[in-house]
Amino acid sequence: MDLPVVVGVDGSEPSLRAVDWAADEAVLREAPLRLVYASLWERYEGTSLATDLNKPSEQVRAEDIVATAARRARHRQPEVRVSTAVLPEEPEYALVRESRTASLLVTGTRGRSGLAEALLGSVSLIVAGHAQCPMVVVRGNHDNQAPAGTHGRVVVGVGEKPAGSAAVRFAFEEAQRRGVPLEAVRAWRWPAHESTDHPLMAGEPARLHEQRAAVALAAALQDAPATVESHGRTTEGHTRTVLVDASRDAGLLVVGAKRRPGHYGLQLGRVAHGVLHHSTCPVVIVPERM
Rank of each mutant, 00 (worst) to 15 (best):
D2T: 14
P4D: 11
G8V: 13
V9I: 13
D10I: 07
S12C: 07
P14F: 03
S15N: 05
S15D: 06
S15V: 03
L16N: 11
R17K: 12
D20P: 00
W21D: 08
V27C: 11
V27K: 13
R29M: 11
A31E: 13
V36C: 12
S39V: 04
W41I: 05
W41Q: 06
G46R: 02
S48K: 08
S48D: 12
Q59D: 01
V60F: 03
E63M: 06
D64V: 02
T68E: 15
A70P: 12
A73C: 12
R74P: 03
H75A: 15
R76T: 12
E79W: 00
E79R: 14
V80T: 13
V82Q: 08
A85H: 12
A85V: 12
L87Q: 13
L87S: 10
E89M: 14
E90F: 04
P91G: 12
Y93T: 14
A102N: 07
S103N: 04
L104R: 03
L105F: 11
G111S: 07
S113Q: 09
G114I: 08
A116L: 09
G121A: 03
S122W: 10
V123W: 05
V123K: 02
S124F: 06
L125V: 09
I126N: 10
Q132I: 00
P134G: 04
M135Y: 09
V136I: 15
V138E: 06
N141E: 13
H142Y: 09
Q145A: 12
A146D: 03
G149I: 09
T150N: 14
R153V: 04
G157V: 07
G159I: 09
E160C: 00
K161I: 00
G164I: 13
G164M: 10
G164W: 11
A166W: 06
A167E: 05
A167I: 10
V168D: 01
F170V: 01
A171C: 08
A171R: 05
A175D: 06
R177A: 15
R177S: 12
V180T: 07
E183G: 00
A184E: 00
V185Q: 00
A187M: 02
W188L: 01
W190N: 05
D197T: 13
L200T: 14
A202V: 15
A206K: 14
A206M: 13
R207P: 03
Q211W: 11
Q211G: 11
A213W: 03
V215W: 08
A216T: 04
A219C: 00
L221D: 08
L221G: 05
D223V: 00
D223Q: 12
V228P: 01
V228K: 02
E229G: 05
H231R: 15
H231F: 12
G232I: 10
G232D: 10
G232P: 01
R233C: 06
T234Q: 08
T234N: 02
E236W: 01
H238C: 00
L243E: 07
R248S: 14
D249H: 13
L253C: 02
L253E: 02
V254S: 00
V255C: 04
K258C: 04
R259Y: 06
P261Y: 02
G265W: 10
L266F: 06
G269S: 07
G269L: 06
G274H: 05
G274L: 03
L276N: 01
C281N: 10
V283D: 07
R289E: 15
